[in-house]
Amino acid sequence: MNEEIIIAGFGGQGVLSMGKILAYSGVMQGMEVSWMPSYGPEMRGGTANVTVILSDSRISSPILRKYDTAIILNQQSMDKFEQTVKPGGLLVYDGNGITRHPERDDINIYRVDAAEEASKMQSAKTFNMIVLGGYLKINPVVTMENVMNGLKKSLPDRHHHLLPLNEAAIKRGTEIVQEIATV
């Protein structure tokens, strides 16, 4: 198994955290892992992306031009990364703020309306966990147990009281993910 993932959006959407949780989860499953963030100098509102590679064998390089999966959280990232998904690959996106939806017919496309759902849950900070849940429903590259362990490891102790809320958000993401197109 070798899964090469790009997660991209605005700073403040939990892009890097989502990648870190996937990376920790992979480590806990005994996988080889690479986590490579990229972001601008802005704290919030600037662009951010992270490349995560999960593999059963050694990873030769964390630098990629094509991905098995793209998780897209804003229009700028859609414009930049839609074409980087390998044919037959997977694109998962949140529809909020997307003005040009994915148009390719050689990839699998799924939509998770996480911003809307986070609003309904009255917890904007669960946005990224809802998206993560949708992705893991489609492609369960790591177990839920390891995701929760990864989340616990990535959250400071003072925020561990939020673990049940995040677990509920992940579960909700698995319930609301929608298939748009499959090859």
Rank of each mutant, 00 (worst) to 15 (best):
R44H: 04
S55L: 03
L22W: 11
T51I: 12
G14P: 05
Y24A: 06
D68Q: 03
S17H: 04
L64C: 03
V27Q: 09
G40F: 09
L16D: 02
I59N: 04
D56I: 14
A8V: 04
V52Y: 11
L64I: 00
I53M: 08
G46D: 03
D56K: 15
E42H: 07
S34W: 13
I63L: 15
S60Q: 12
L22T: 05
I63M: 14
Q13P: 04
T69C: 07
S61E: 08
F10W: 14
R58I: 06
S25F: 03
I6Q: 01
G19S: 06
I59S: 01
I5M: 14
D68K: 05
Y24I: 06
T47C: 07
M43R: 15
S61T: 15
E32Y: 15
G11P: 07
A8N: 02
D68M: 03
K66M: 10
L54C: 04
Y39Q: 10
E3G: 00
Q13V: 12
L16I: 14
G46R: 01
Q29V: 09
G30A: 03
I63C: 08
L54S: 04
S25Y: 02
R65V: 06
V33M: 02
D68T: 11
G40L: 02
G19K: 03
G26T: 15
R65S: 10
V15L: 02
Y24E: 12
E3K: 11
A23K: 05
Q13L: 13
D56E: 15
G46S: 10
G40W: 12
D56G: 15
V27S: 00
E32H: 13
Y39G: 08
L16V: 13
R65Y: 13
V52R: 07
F10V: 02
I6L: 04
E42F: 01
M18L: 05
M36A: 11
P37K: 01
Q13G: 11
R58K: 14
Q29L: 10
I53G: 07
F10T: 00
G40Y: 06
M28G: 14
W35T: 08
P37R: 08
T69G: 06
S55V: 05
G46E: 07
K20I: 03
M43W: 13
G45T: 01
G9R: 12
G12K: 03
G19C: 05
G11N: 02
S34G: 15
I21M: 02
Y67K: 09
S34Q: 15
Y67C: 00
V33E: 02
G46Y: 07
M36F: 13
S38R: 02
L54E: 07
S55C: 09
V15C: 09
V50N: 01
K66Y: 02
V52E: 05
S57Q: 14
V15M: 13
E32S: 11
G11C: 11
G9S: 09
Q29R: 10
S17W: 06
G9I: 04
G14N: 00
Q29H: 12
G45A: 02
R58Y: 14
G26H: 08
M43E: 12
V27I: 15
P37V: 10
L22C: 03
L22F: 06
G11A: 09
E4C: 08
T47V: 07
D68R: 05
I59R: 02
F10A: 06
Q29W: 08
G46M: 04
V33K: 03
Y24Q: 09
P37T: 11
